[in-house]
Write a protein that binds this DNA or RNA. Structure first.
Lengths: 194, 194
DNA sequence: TGCTTTTTCTAACAACTGTTCGTAAGAGCT
DNA sequence: AGCTCTTACGAACAGTTGTTAGAAAAAGCA
């Protein structure tokens, strides 16, 4: 059995931690704060996690893994155009934001507090992800599907434009997740101007 | 004389603080860290600033003021089209990122650590700024200049897309500030696809 | 030069940090 | 029931936090 009672409880701690880290930052969240939200004393949590660092590490690792596997999936899916690939990747991104808001927020903002072996690993993983995404854009430009923008500019514009979703999206807002997705894709691929 | 020796030294402390806050976060930066970068003992800085909170407050206030005055300037400039207004505002944004990277970064990420009277004030200022910007977009949509996107989506896509500049731009990169500006504007207004 | 005011330092404070230890309470099993 | 193993807790640790008080040094000025 992989989902023992212990791993479930641990995941609960990680989820609560992600919410708090998002709200108050990694440094601004104390183990006693977290314990309060979890419903335990601070000391008791050490039955489930090794350290505060490890909490951050597990959250960042999980999200990085999802990002990378999503890119791999898109890369090896034979699709008509590069525009279709980029669009699909944008949509996966947005869905991840909606479904895993707090954890993604932590991976986006608090990764810099990772302790040293993991910090380098995370930065490297992110870099290789960005390079893979940039390659898709380059190929699209070379194929004449995209405007001749500098690939890095297009890449970071997309990545950043998608990031605010995690800050903004609340289930039950006037805008559905689907409409949101369509509008962002339209904006990024076709632009605001008519 | 407004720029006394004391205010110059204080501004230097604020600038160093912005760099450190950007790098390690507000909570991750201690007064002793800051003092080290400034070249003083921690206690000595209290001749120039009242508290660590005040440092954050002054940085955020200054940037918020710039944002608001930039919007006001664009709003009352009679310009041909809404597209031209939005483009001008985007360009001002990007220039601010390039010129005041660290301070803008702090105002974007660490504002949530502001103590309470200022926190509400900052949030309100930002909200009114966003509403002003959104109005420009709405009017552009109404005038038929823009695609019929939800104004909030267009707004936050623009604001976020512009934000990464502060994380990415280094003077002396292969891309000049001007090229950067043109590519981002092209991407946001015309889209990536051809 | 001496006097005053400003600037800087050292030392210390109380509060808080992540984490460990020993023990008590609980769960599961026979 | 008694025994074992896991989980939870209170207390305490060493270190760090922002900040203050008082003395020392520096600067400005007569």
């Amino acid at each position: 059995m992989l989902t023992t009672k212990k791993t479930i409880r641990r995941q609960f701690i990680l989820d609560e931690a992600a919410k708090l880290f998002k709200e108050k930052g990694y440094g601004g969240t104390s183990m006693r704060d977290l314990a309060g939200n979890v419903g335990l004393e601070a000391a008791s949590m050490y039955n489930y996690i090794k350290s505060k660092d490890e909490i951050l590490e597990l959250i960042c690792q999980r999200i990085a893994g999802i990002y990378i596997s999503q890119l791999a999936e898109i890369e090896q899916t034979p699709q008509a155009t590069y525009a279709a690939k980029v669009e699909a990747l944008i949509r996966l991104h947005i869905r991840l934001m909606v479904e895993e808001g707090p954890a993604v927020s932590v991976a986006n903002h608090d990764w810099k507090y990772l302790p040293e072996p993991q910090l380098t690993a995370f930065k490297q993983a992110r870099k290789s992800y960005e390079q893979g995404f940039a390659r898709l854009i380059e190929q699209g430009v070379a194929a004449g599907e995209f405007q001749a923008l500098h690939p890095s500019v297009a890449l970071f514009t997309i990545l950043s434009a998608v990031r605010w979703v995690e800050l903004w999206y609340r289930p039950g807002r006037e805008l559905s997740a689907e409409e949101l997705e369509n509008d962002i894709v339209a904006m990024l691929l076709s632009g605001l101007a008519k």
